[in-house]
Write a protein that binds this DNA or RNA. Sequence first.
DNA 1: TGACAAACTATCCTTTTGTATAGTATCTAT
DNA 2: ATAGATACTATACAAAAGGATAGTTTGTCA
Lengths: 202, 202
Amino acid sequence: MEPLSTRQEEILKFLAHYQAEHGFPPTAREIAGHFGFKSHKAAVDHVKALERKGYLQLHKGKSRGMEITSNYPSFSGIIPVVGRIGAGTPIFAIENLEETLKIDSSLFSRGECFAVRVKGDSMIEAHIKDGDYVILKRQDYAENGDIAGIVMGDEVTLKYYYKRKGRIELVPANPKLKPIIIEPGSESLQIAGIMVGLIRRR
Amino acid sequence: MEPLSTRQEEILKFLAHYQAEHGFPPTAREIAGHFGFKSHKAAVDHVKALERKGYLQLHKGKSRGMEITSNYPSFSGIIPVVGRIGAGTPIFAIENLEETLKIDSSLFSRGECFAVRVKGDSMIEAHIKDGDYVILKRQDYAENGDIAGIVMGDEVTLKYYYKRKGRIELVPANPKLKPIIIEPGSESLQIAGIMVGLIRRR
DNA sequence: TGACAAACTATCCTTTTGTATAGTATCTAT
DNA sequence: ATAGATACTATACAAAAGGATAGTTTGTCA
């Protein structure tokens, strides 16, 4: 595959995200609106560049007439399994991918999904076993009681998320392990996503 | 789900097919064209009926603005979810299908797979929760310690399978429930398959 | 230096598409 | 009997969206 510029990758990512979110692709004007372009021609140019490089197939004359052709993880609904993630590096950077699950992510959620492989028994009382793949929907916030994927160092760990009296509690589903309590004012935590599903093999 | 008329089912099927083919939904005029309607209003009416019955979500004012919301039996291979099964009827008979999971079964096993939706907590200590989909590989025997899908009446239930001293024990993963013991010579039990995977939503 | 890709703004025109109004005909359940 | 759903035809109009032309700016590669 021909390499993409930073901007083109952003565009492609947005296309995949919009498609996952809405069930149909965006129009040139919607793309322009999202990125703040004042002329939709800019979006047309990007989309054409993506077609030329083989990432898209365009259908001339048809509204929203585009298909993402690439098998690139996280595009086309396939769920990438994330191993380690560097502090700053985006979660979908290629170097972080361990494998992919050939599953249409729409089974679990609209929106962009990824998976982490569970190590250990910290969520055993939520019936999440060692070796299970937990499917997470990518979002940077969580509701009370959600099982959230939290970025800790260079890994994603799973915890129940609670916000009580202004402080955030990250509670494992295992009585042997202690909750992590984040007092207000301390450095913020980074939520990678919330659990929307689980896959177990064997 | 509300029942669909024959025509409405044809329309929905076409929508799913078109979406799978093209990556985006059809317009009302394209639907009309496919069915030979001379007025695209007919297609609009059908699509609105499908929305009213909950099979579609429409996005007003947006071209191709529709999403299929149901898990409408689709077209790619994929795992059927079996509800009840009549004594003689084959497990894959259409009347038994409740829904399908859009997952390539090769993720779990080489053989033929199907799924049952778990009711209750009888396998809770194996970390199989109420509502989980358990993926079974179709076979009529089991090894010691396998989690097997057993045909009981007109349903499939899950049990640990053990063969000890000539008799077969079907053990739930819940201390509150008693094992079923089948003495040698009594009527044979029917194994539908053995567990090869699990899918949990939410 | 010159060609080319990338990344845009601005404007115009045409086609595509959604939505609306006005009908016709058949069937079904109350 | 009659109201409602189903299943269409026909036509008109406005909004949505694609496509094209003409330009600016900033890089990079050779």
